[in-house]
Amino acid sequence: MRKVLAVMHKEWLELRRERWLVATTLLMPVLLTGLPFGLLSTASASTTNLGPIADLPMFQGFTPDEIVQIVLLRQFLVLFLLMPLYIPSTIAAHSIVGEKVSRTLEPLLAAPLRTGEILLAKSLIAALPATLITWLCYAIYSIGARFVAISGRVYTEVFTQAWLLAVILWVPALAMISVALGVIISARTSDPRTAQQLTKIVVVPLLLIFFAQLAGVLIIDTIVVAGTVVPLVLLAAGSLVVATRLFDRERILIRWN
C-alpha cells in the first residue's frame, strides 16, 4: 500500500504542474453546475414546450410550471453522472501513454512494483478528485435548487433519497469504470491523441440514461439504485483487473524503442 501511495504522490506532484489541466478540471463542473440555474431562472410553461412529455402519468396533479421545473431539474441530475465519467478521462487517458512518450516508464517497470499497484495508484489519482468534485457540485446543486424551486413538492419530487444514494454510490463506481477504461486505452496505444479521443466514448452510455429518463422509461428510485450498485462496483473492480491483465509490460517496452 505504501508503494501505491508513493505513486499517487508522484502523480499528484506532476498533476499540480499541469495548470491547464487543473483549470479545466475545475471549470467544467462549475459550468455544468451553473448551467441549470441559468436555465431554470427563465424556464416556465409559457417558454418551454415539453410536448407529449408533460402528459406522462407521473406528472398528474402538478401545474404546468411545476412540470417544466421537475423535468429540467431531473434532467440536469444526469449531468452529475456525466461528471465522474468525463472529468477523470483526460488524466486517465494520459496515465500510461504519457509515461511512454516521456520515456519514464522503463525505470518504473524495472522497479519492484506490481502492475496492479501502478494501475491502482494511477486510477485512484484520477478517480478521487472527480468523485469529490462531483459530490461537492451535487451538494451545491441540491442546495441551490431549493431556492429556485417554485414549490416544495417540486423539490421533493426531484431530489429523492434514491438520487442522493445514486450520487453517493454510483459516482465513485462510474469514475473508476471510466478511469479503468481510460487506463486500458492508454496502455494499449502509443499515441496520446488516440488515447484522449477514444476515452470520450465513456459518455455515450450515459445518454441512454438521459433519454430514458426523459421519456419516462426509467425512473430512478431506491430499488433501481440498490439493484445496480453491486453490479456497478463489480464492473469497476472488474475493469481494473482487466486493465491489469491487459497491461503487457514487454509489449509496452519493445514497441517503444
Binding site: 505504501r2 508503494k3 501511495l5 508513493a6 505513486v7 504522490h9 508522484k10 506532484l13 506532476e14 504542474r17 499541469e18 516521456s102 520515456r103 519514464t104 516508464l105 522503463e106 525505470p107 518504473l108 524495472a110 522497479a111 519492484p112 512494483l113 524503442n257
Partner: peptide, 27 residues
C-alpha cells in the same frame, strides 16, 4: 539497480522529488 537506456526522469519533478519517489518504491 538499473540505469536504463534513457534516463527516464520526471521532468516536472525536482531532482530530490524524483529520488524520493524511487526511494519510497524501494521501501
Amino acid at each position: 539497480g538499473v540505469l536504463t537506456e534513457t534516463p527516464g526522469l520526471y521532468d516536472k519533478l525536482s531532482a530530490e522529488q524524483n529520488l524520493l519517489f524511487y526511494a519510497a518504491i524501494y521501501e
